[in-house]
Amino acid sequence: MSISQGLIVCWATLVVLSVGTVLAGGSGLWLAVLLLAVVKAWLIADGFMELRHAPRFWRALVLGWPVVLVLVVGLV
C-alpha cells in the first residue's frame, strides 16, 4: 500500500468512526463515544501527523493528550 493509499484508508476509517460516534451518542453509549474520540485522535496523530515514526517522547505527548482529556471527562 502506498503512503497516499494509507492516508485514504485512515480518512475512511475516521469517517466511519465519526458516523459511529453520532450513532453511539444517539443510543446513549457514552463510553463508546469517548473511546471513539481517543481512537480518532490517535488516527490523526499517527496517520495524518506522521507520529508513528516520530521520536517516542513526542508521540507519547500527542497520543496522551486525548487519553488524559477523555479520562477526566469520563471521571467528572
Binding site: T21, G25, W30, V33, L36, A37, A41, I44, A45, V73
Partner: peptide
C-alpha cells in the same frame, strides 16, 4: 485533532 475531541463533548455526550 482538537475537533474530534471537542465535537462529541459539545454535540453528542
Amino acid at each position: 485533532l482538537v475537533w474530534v475531541v471537542l465535537f462529541p463533548l459539545v454535540y453528542v455526550i
